[in-house]
Computed example of a mutant assay.
Amino acid sequence: MGDPHHLEDGPKTMITVLIADDQELARLGHSLVVGSASDMTVVAEASSGEDAIATCEERQPDVVLMDVRMPGIGGIAATREITATHPATKVVILTSFDLDQYAFGALEAGASAFLLKTVTPERLIDAIRTVHQGDAVVEPRITRKLIDHALAEQARPLQEPRSALDVLSPREYDVFLAIATGMTNAEISARLFLSPATVKSHINKVFGKLGLRDRVHAVILAHRLGITTGL
């Protein structure tokens, strides 16, 4: 392992995590998972939405693991408040059921990830790293229902003509279509023969040109424009 006092490369930057869940056993489990990663640490725990907001104000964590259903205002309202007042803090929503209507509300509340509580430890750790880097994560089993719910809520005449995508370059359009099919950055990289850094650059440009907050909204836009049929 080397000399622990050898600091030639400088101290490692740790991802700080707040765990918000009203069940003590759940908090313990998540804490053990996060603590097993060498690049992240649990800085605090919260047992309610109000507690999560107050703790974020005090500790300024990088990522919050947020349970949807908690006493008081709950996880969604807490997420909305935290993302509004602390934009640098990313929120990972954890839900027990893929049909949980409360989880759908977190989409507009500013959450960066939606995961089932049955997620594997490896997947949870990857999600924390991903959102910390500025990307979004959606559990595959939830993705379709999130889209269907959002489309139902937005059931009105189409406002965005397909020409709205004309601002994209051909390669950016390819990336947009890949996102619309639910592909991860790694999958896009392999499919389009692009480096991970180039993929991320294209995604940022796509989001900026189309005014999208994250990849979930990109999927919703693609479906509203009817360009994913048959993909």
Rank of each mutant, 00 (worst) to 15 (best):
L28V: 14
I128V: 14
A20P: 15
T89N: 02
A136C: 11
E24M: 01
V219E: 04
A186R: 10
S36C: 06
K145M: 04
L124N: 15
E8K: 15
G226F: 11
R69E: 11
L124Q: 07
I93C: 10
I73G: 11
S169D: 07
E57G: 13
R156I: 01
K90F: 00
E153D: 12
A84M: 09
S112G: 01
P11N: 09
T55L: 15
L99M: 01
P71W: 06
K117I: 13
G226P: 08
L221I: 01
A127E: 05
A150Y: 04
V33F: 14
L124T: 13
I203P: 07
P161V: 15
L99Q: 05
S112E: 00
M14S: 03
A46C: 14
I179Q: 08
F176T: 10
I76H: 02
Y102M: 07
R213P: 01
G208P: 06
V42E: 12
M183L: 08
R215G: 00
L115Q: 10
H149S: 14
H217S: 01
L158P: 03
H132K: 12
L124F: 07
E57V: 03
I19Q: 02
F104P: 05
F207S: 10
D148H: 02
H86T: 05
Q159R: 05
L221T: 00
L225Q: 14
E122S: 00
M183E: 01
P161W: 12
T95F: 10
H6W: 05
R171Y: 02
T41E: 11
E81L: 15
K205I: 07
L194H: 06
K205P: 06
G182D: 02
L231K: 07
L25M: 14
G226N: 13
E58T: 14
S201M: 06
T229P: 01
I203D: 09
A103W: 12
R129D: 06
A77S: 06
D9S: 15
P140H: 03
G74D: 11
K90H: 10
N185M: 03
V43L: 04
D98N: 14
S31L: 02
R80C: 10
S31V: 06
A109D: 00
G134N: 08
A84E: 13
L151E: 08
G208K: 04
L99F: 07
Q101R: 06
V17T: 11
E81P: 09
E45C: 04
H132Q: 07
A178H: 03
L116S: 07
D9W: 10
L231R: 10
A152Q: 09
D135L: 08
I142L: 15
D100K: 11
T229F: 01
P196Q: 11
E153G: 07
I128F: 09
E57M: 11
S96E: 10
I125T: 10
L107I: 02
A197L: 06
A78F: 11
A186E: 12
R213W: 01
A44F: 13
E187C: 06
A88E: 15
V34K: 04
A78P: 04
G72P: 13
T228L: 06
L212I: 02
L99A: 08
A178L: 06
D135W: 08
